[in-house]
Structures are given as C-alpha cells and as structure tokens.
Design a protein around this nucleic acid. Structure first.
Lengths: 211, 211
DNA sequence: GCCTAATCGTGAAAAAAATCTCATAAGGCC
DNA sequence: GGCCTTATGAGATTTTTTTCACGATTAGGC
C-alpha cells in the first residue's frame, strides 16, 4: 500500500522524493511512460539505483520485477507523503527584492503551495500586486492568517525584524516557516523552520572555479 | 596559515563555510566583534561547536585558546578558499520568470559574483534591462563569453533547450554551470554543474504540515 | 511451457558526517 | 607569578548515508 509512513523520513530522503517527483511529472507529459525503472531514474538524476529503490520502499512502493514501477502510482505516493495532493495556502512576509523574486517564481503551485498574500510595511508597495499577489499592510497580518487558517509563511524580511515577525506568525497559528533570512529563529517545538539560503550553491561553484 | 587546501573540501563543508561567512559578515557590521568562538557561531547557526572547529581546521584556521577565532581572519580565509576575493563575472541564460527573479536578487555581489549579461531568444525582452542587467540575443552568447572570458553561467531555460545551450556554453569556454533546470546536463569532466532546485525545501515543509 | 534477461528487495559493508570526550593551552584575576 | 576558567584541537565513537552483492521474481521470446 502506498503512503505507509510508519518511520519518519529524513531530510535527504524527502529531498530526493522531491527530485523524483519533479522529474517524473516533467518527463511524463513529454513522453508519457507507463512504467519506470529505478535505473532510469538513477541515470537521469545521477543517483544510485539502489538508493531509488530504498526511497521508494520507504514510502511503501512495491515495484514489479522486470518492469519497474508504475509512474502514476509513484507520483501518487509521493504526492501523498509530501502532502501535495491537498493544496495549502501560504503567505509571504517581506515583499522586498527576494520576496518579489519568489512571488514571481510560479513553480510552487505544482507542489500544492498557493501564495495568497504578501505583507510589507513599506507604504509604497502596500495595496499593489506583485506577480498577481496582493501586498497588504503588516497590521493585517494576524487577522488574515487567522481568518484564512494559514499554516505556512515564507519569511523574506530584514534580519532585525525577523524574530519579531516570527513570533507574530506563530501566535497567529502558523505551523511552518520557510526562512530566507540569515537568522536562527526561535519557535515552539511544534513549528517547523526550514532555513534557506539562495546563494549556498555558489560555495561549490566558486570553489571549483578557484581550483 | 589560512588557505591550506591540501584536502578536497566536500559539498557539506563548503556550504557550512558559506553559512559562517554570511553570518559573520552580517553580524559584524552591526556589532563589530573582534573575535568569535565556535560556540557563538554554533549557537547562532544551530550547528555543533565541534563541527565549526573541524571546518575551520580544514581550511587552516587556528584559534586561540580562551578567546576563539579572529573574525577578520576567518572571513579572509573563507573568502580565499571560496574564491570570493576575486570577483568573477557570470552570465544568465534564459531571462524568464525564474531568471528574472535571480537577476532581481542582489545578494550575489557579496560573494564575488557579478552577473554582467542575460541572454534570451524572446524578441520582446531582447534589448531591455532586467534588474539593471542587459538582455541580449542568444546569437551573441558565444562571442560575448569569449570576449569577456566568462567562466560561470546560470541556466534558467526550458528543459528542452538546456542541453543544447549547455553545449554552446561549454564550447565557448564556460567552466561552471549553475543549473536551475530539472535536467541532468552532460559536460566534460573539467566543467562543474551544480544542480539547484528552488522548491526543494518545500518537501520538508509540506511533509511537516502533513504529519 | 520453459528459459533467459532484466529488475526488484534486502541485508551486509563501506564511506561519510556528526558528535562526544578529554587533554592542552592561554587569557584574566588575585 | 600562580591559579582558575574557558576555548581549542584531535582522537575515538556513534550515527547516518551510500554503495555493493546477491537471491527472488517476473515478463517476454522461442
């Protein structure tokens, strides 16, 4: 049965699942495959085939000998485990340079994330729309989250206000924060903070160019 | 001596170095510290203090007992190892939604990366500027790279043209490709491809919200 | 209907990464 | 100047992650 989540999945596994999902949903509508083998995925994503099978096994997928895995079943299982099947609404806090960049990136909808509003306290952007998303005043943050039962917030504010806004987000009921600020946020244990760093990949690139 | 790179540094180490660097350069100009301890960094970044010392040791930094590490020396060593001290110029290929988002993000300059031009084949954007960066025709890609001795390219094109453009980039002399397309690119062994996936962090967040 | 080739699933082994422990050294205080 | 506190550095240990090896299984050809 797909979707067996008895054991907790670690970060690396979740990220690989994401990569499988993207590759499968990207390539299947170009050349629709009914089935796929672990070797095919491994080849495309530069991963060991055993790893793919292990990951699939971890989310309860069972392949067929000599054939591989059914693509639609794999996709369904990953969607289920990662929660992409139920669309969740999120808000973005801090509609600055990076915030606008994320709003402009329209790839999140594929993964069940719908950014419904952005918040800022710059009067010049309040009331406008960025990439089709309305920018509202920080004052309306808490009531908005309460009213729409928002559980996910993307944080792209200056460092000095990030903790204060986090506190407000948490007290309003947010359960996960995608933190793009270079701050270690303090939150209650039931709230997840995922720290992101856009430029992280540069470390590897710069190191390679240097050597 | 700082900058000893006898042993090859792995991806995780490089990424942590990047995090140290960002934190140090961000907080030092707010409250300039002369020295910093591994415990302070560890606390701020949610990393084990031993890990910090190991990483510092790996790039040849030597701390002082009872005091810690000299901030400016740490920064200098990281800049040297990661190559931030010498500014490198890069181009962006594919000035679409995501490409524009990356151009709008102005944080790269801090890490020695200067995006000097973008390339696209949509006549509506060719000749315009996105976030201050001129968008040029794909036809001028190769001569531009040759002329300016560009070694780094950011790839944000549709999947179907990514390999073809990669080949052109490589033949023009590019040595590192920051790949934001969901494709495994084939390149000669001396060229580095760093695959990036903006939405990767969503896997962890969605999983948490689901469970 | 059987044989073959290809694929899965799993347990063991290897490699990599993170953590723990503790001896050593160096600044600050009396 | 000697002692105490505190931070480093390095080896040992643990945990996590990846890779290897191989039996089991199944579709497809002859």
């Amino acid at each position: 049965m797909a979707g067996d989540d008895s054991a907790r999945l670690t970060r690396v596994v979740l990220e690989r699942l994401m990569r499988y999902y993207r590759w499968l949903t990207d390539s299947t509508f170009r050349k629709p495959l009914k089935t796929v083998t672990s070797a095919q995925i491994a080849e495309a994503l530069d991963i060991d085939p055993t790893q793919v099978r292990k990951d699939f096994g971890a989310i309860g997928l069972i392949g067929m000998g000599r054939v591989g895995f059914e693509v639609c079943e794999v996709c369904r299982a990953i969607r289920y485990v990662l929660g992409f099947d139920q669309t969740s609404e999120g808000v973005l806090v801090g509609a600055g340079q990076l915030g606008g960049a994320l709003l402009a990136y329209d790839g999140f909808a594929r993964y069940g994330l719908n950014i419904v509003a952005a918040f800022d306290n710059d009067p010049r952007v309040i009331g406008t729309k960025v990439a089709g998303v309305p920018v509202k005043s920080m004052r309306s943050l808490k009531p908005f989250i309460r009213k729409h039962d928002i559980r996910l917030a993307i944080l792209t504010t200056p460092v000095k206000v990030s903790q204060r806004l986090t506190d407000r987000l948490v007290s309003a009921g947010v359960k996960a924060i995608w933190n793009f600020t270079p701050t270690r946020l303090t939150v209650p244990p039931d709230v997840l903070v995922r720290n992101e760093h856009i430029a992280l990949g540069l470390s590897q690139i710069a190191y390679h160019l240097r050597h």
